[in-house]
C-alpha cells in the first residue's frame, strides 16, 4: 500500500496511514529470555513435586526407620535420614505441596482484596483513604512475620489460617500499591471523559481504571508471591505454620537444626536448598515478567 497520495481526493479527505505494527505478544518476548526459561523450569519441577510428590518419593515421608536415625546420605537414602528416622529426600519432595498451595492462595486472596480496596481508596480518596492509610501505617510498623504469628497464636495454626492471615496482611500492602497506580491514572483525562459520559463509579473503577493498572497488579502479585513463600516458610520454621509431622521444608528445618552442632547437616541443608531454589526460580520469572511489562 505505497500508492501515491490521491491528490485529487474528495473535499477534506486526508489519506490516513496504516496503524503502526502491533507489538509482539508479551509471552513471546518472555520465551526468548533464558533467565525466564531456567526459572520456569525449576518452578515446574517443584509444582510437579507438589502434585505427584507421594508417587515420586522413594519412601513414605512419614515412615520412621528408627534403626537408621541420623544416618548420612547413602544409596538407600540419597539425602540421608533425619533425627527420628524419616527419609529426607522423600520429605523434601513431598514438602513442596503445602507451601505451593498456601503461598499462592494467600497471595491471590491478598491481591483480590487489595485491588478492590486500592481502587476504592484511589478513586474516592477522602476519609476512607486517610483512615485505611493510618491503619496500614500502623501495621507496617511491625514486621509481617510478627503480625502473622500474633494472629496465628490467637487462632491456632492450620493451612487455612495461614492463607487467611497472610492474605489479610498482604491486603493493605497491595492496596497501597494499587492506590498509587490509581492516583497516577487519576490525572489522566480519560477519567474526566468517562465521567462526562455519565459513567458510574463502578464502571470507571473496573472497566476504565483496572485494565490500565493491571500490569502493576501482575507485577505486584509475582513480587508478593515471593514474599508469601518467604513468610510462610519462616512461619513454619518458627512453629506457626505447617505442623509436624506433615512434610514441610520450614518445619523440617525447625525440627532438625538443633542437631547441626552435632554435624548432621543433611537433615536441614536439602530443605534449605529447596526453599532457596524455589525462591530464586520465582525471582527469575518475576524479573523477566517485569522487564517485559516495562519495555
Amino acid at each position: 500500500m505505497t500508492a501515491a497520495p490521491d491528490v485529487s481526493a474528495a473535499p477534506g479527505q486526508v489519506p490516513v496511514a496504516h496503524g503502526l505494527a502491533a507489538p509482539p505478544a508479551p509471552w513471546r518476548l518472555l520465551l526468548r529470555k533464558p533467565t525466564f526459561l531456567i526459572g520456569a523450569l525449576i518452578l515446574l519441577f517443584w509444582i510437579a513435586c507438589a502434585i505427584f510428590g507421594r508417587a515420586i518419593a522413594p519412601h513414605d515421608p512419614l515412615a520412621q526407620d528408627l534403626l537408621a536415625t541420623n544416618s548420612p546420605p547413602s544409596g538407600a537414602h540419597p539425602f540421608g535420614v533425619d533425627s527420628i528416622g524419616r527419609d529426607v529426600l522423600s520429605r523434601v519432595i513431598v514438602g513442596a505441596r503445602d507451601i505451593l498451595l498456601i503461598a499462592p492462595l494467600a497471595t491471590l486472596l491478598g491481591t483480590v482484596l487489595g485491588t478492590v480496596l486500592g481502587l476504592a481508596m484511589g478513586y474516592f480518596g477522602g476519609i476512607v483513604d486517610t483512615l485505611v492509610g493510618r491503619v496500614v501505617e500502623a501495621v507496617l510498623a511491625l514486621p509481617v512475620v510478627i503480625v502473622a504469628f500474633l494472629f496465628i497464636v490467637a487462632v491456632g495454626p492450620s493451612p487455612l489460617t495461614l492463607i487467611v492471615v497472610v492474605g489479610f496482611i498482604f491486603t493493605p500492602l497491595i492496596a497501597r500499591t494499587v492506590r498509587t497506580a490509581v492516583l497516577v491514572e487519576g490525572q489522566q483525562d480519560y477519567l474526566a471523559s468517562a465521567r462526562l459520559l455519565g459513567e458510574r463509579p463502578g464502571y470507571i473503577m473496573f472497566a476504565e481504571i483496572l485494565p490500565n493498572v493491571f500490569p502493576v497488579i501482575v507485577v505486584e502479585f509475582t513480587v508478593r508471591l515471593g514474599y508469601a513463600i518467604f513468610a510462610v516458610a519462616t512461619l513454619s520454621f518458627l512453629g506457626f505454620g505447617v505442623q509436624q509431622p506433615t512434610p514441610d521444608w520450614g518445619g523440617d528445618i525447625a525440627a532438625n537444626y538443633v542437631l547441626l552442632g552435632a554435624g548432621y547437616w543433611w537433615e536441614t541443608l536439602f530443605a534449605a536448598l529447596a526453599i532457596a531454589s524455589l525462591v530464586m526460580a520465582l525471582n527469575l520469572v518475576t524479573d523477566a515478567i517485569e522487564q517485559v511489562i516495562s519495555s
Binding site: 533467565t35 515471593g226 514474599y227 513463600i229 518467604f230 516458610a233 519462616t234 520454621f237 520450614g250 528445618i253 537444626y257 547441626l260 552442632g261 554435624g263 547437616w265 536441614t268 541443608l269 534449605a272 536448598l273 526453599i275 532457596a276 525462591v279 530464586m280 520465582l282 525471582n283 527469575l284 524479573d287
Partner: peptide, 27 residues
C-alpha cells in the same frame, strides 16, 4: 548485582542461615 540482590533479599534468613552455619560453623 541486581539478580543476586533480588535472590538474596527473598531467600528467608533461616535458609541462608542454615547454609552459613553448615559452611562456617560446622564444616
Amino acid at each position: 548485582i541486581s539478580l543476586g540482590g533480588l535472590a538474596a533479599s527473598t531467600v528467608p534468613e533461616f535458609v541462608s542461615g542454615i547454609v552459613v552455619i553448615i559452611i562456617f560453623g560446622v564444616a
